[in-house]
Computed example of a mutant assay.
Amino acid sequence: MSAGPESTHVSSLGKGDNLHQQVLASFPLCDMTEEDLTQNPQFCKLLATLAQHVDQTGLTVSLKAELEKAEQKLQTQRCHWLRSESLHRGLQEMIQDHCVRKHHAVVPPDQNMFYETMEKCLLVAQCVRQLDASSTTGQDQPSVLGLNTQQVMELMPLEKNVQRMKQSLPRELEKHLKKKCLNLLSYYQPEWENESEGLKNTKLSHLSVQMDKEKKRAESLRETCRENTILLQRQTQLYLSELIKSIQLLQSLILDHRLKIQTDLDRKKLDYFEGKCELVLQKIKAEMIEIQLDTYTADSISAHRKMREKLELELKACQVEKQSVELKLASFEILGKEFETLAEEYCRLQQEIEMKNWALKEFTQYNDK
């Protein structure tokens, strides 16, 4: 039963790519791409249905209406506060300007009395507002320094001075505000500073309209900038995703190409090193032959051959003698440890005989001399 309205809402938004674009436009603050919506169609339908009940900031329609009412009420209260605050600051600026003028020029007594009366009235009004805080908080507040409102009101100037000040106040305030407006006009359009008074007043009457136009233009540019920022973020994300895909494709192509040419490259390197090694071996052989030719003559080679033959014969004779001795030694080992003792005794006696023969020989040679 509930599928009917949802399908109606979805069909009212659009289909296919148009639906995706409208969903993305309805939720600009969400970090989504058209690919995400394509891969998740049910989620896309949910967002399309949800777009009928919320705005781009995520607020529901009822909450949006309440928020607009609260903002209107706040704007009204703000306008009242700004009006009173601007009037109060304007009066304070008038007093400050008067104080500055007193130090640079002589001020008429009536004008001096006007500003002194106005300053006292402002101070008393400010003190009364500070003492009577219950009007804003709704609670009884303790008195400051033990003072009450009646005691502070006794510090008001004379009634005739207050009445005289009230009569002159609109005119003086108008002069001050007009001066500020002219200063603002000169700041906004410096080329109008040397214009006549009447022309300035005419242009001053249109200044608020121009300021409203400039404000609307600035807001429009700010909104355009915000939309361009969102679009730029989305395009940047899309660009980065496409760039990553391109890099991955390029890496795969490079890897495949490298694997294909690596075998041919290794084979060519192997052939090169084999040829180089063979060349080095041939060069070594040639150098060895050249050294032999420079070192050995024909006579020395024939003599070396004869020496080699003689040494080989002696080597064979020694090997035959070694074999016979090994056979004798093996036969002696069969006799055991008793023969080993006799052999050691025989070796000792043989050494003594040799020593005595050597001593006898030396003694005989000495006697002959």
Results as ranks from 00 to 15, higher is better:
2 S>T: 09
2 S>Q: 08
3 A>M: 14
5 P>T: 01
6 E>F: 08
7 S>V: 04
7 S>N: 06
11 S>I: 02
13 L>S: 02
13 L>M: 03
19 L>V: 02
21 Q>A: 10
27 F>I: 02
27 F>K: 06
28 P>C: 03
31 D>E: 09
33 T>I: 01
38 T>Q: 10
41 P>E: 04
45 K>S: 02
45 K>A: 00
46 L>W: 02
52 Q>L: 10
55 D>V: 02
61 V>H: 08
61 V>Y: 07
65 A>M: 11
65 A>W: 06
66 E>G: 05
66 E>H: 07
67 L>G: 02
70 A>V: 10
71 E>S: 10
73 K>G: 08
74 L>R: 04
79 C>I: 14
81 W>T: 15
82 L>Q: 13
83 R>V: 10
87 L>R: 09
88 H>L: 15
90 G>T: 08
91 L>K: 04
97 D>H: 10
101 R>L: 13
102 K>N: 00
107 V>E: 00
107 V>D: 01
108 P>E: 13
109 P>D: 07
110 D>C: 09
113 M>D: 08
121 C>Q: 03
122 L>W: 04
126 Q>P: 04
130 Q>K: 15
145 L>V: 05
147 L>F: 06
148 N>E: 03
148 N>K: 05
153 M>C: 11
155 L>A: 12
158 L>E: 13
160 K>V: 12
165 M>V: 00
168 S>P: 00
172 E>Q: 12
174 E>Y: 14
176 H>G: 00
176 H>S: 07
177 L>Y: 05
181 C>E: 14
183 N>S: 11
185 L>E: 03
191 E>T: 01
192 W>C: 04
196 S>W: 03
196 S>P: 06
201 N>F: 07
205 S>L: 11
207 L>M: 00
216 K>S: 07
216 K>E: 13
220 S>E: 14
224 T>C: 05
226 R>K: 10
229 T>G: 06
236 T>P: 06
248 Q>E: 15
253 L>P: 00
253 L>Y: 05
255 L>G: 13
257 H>L: 15
261 I>L: 11
262 Q>C: 13
265 L>Y: 10
276 K>M: 08
277 C>G: 04
282 Q>G: 04
288 M>T: 12
293 L>Y: 02
293 L>A: 11
296 Y>N: 03
297 T>W: 02
298 A>D: 11
299 D>T: 10
303 A>P: 03
304 H>C: 11
304 H>K: 12
307 M>F: 06
310 K>W: 08
313 L>F: 01
316 K>Q: 12
317 A>N: 06
317 A>D: 05
319 Q>Y: 06
320 V>G: 01
322 K>Y: 11
330 A>K: 14
333 E>Q: 14
339 F>D: 01
345 E>R: 11
346 Y>Q: 13
347 C>V: 14
348 R>K: 14
353 I>E: 09
357 N>F: 08
358 W>H: 12
359 A>G: 00
361 K>F: 05
364 T>R: 12
366 Y>W: 09
367 N>L: 15
368 D>V: 14
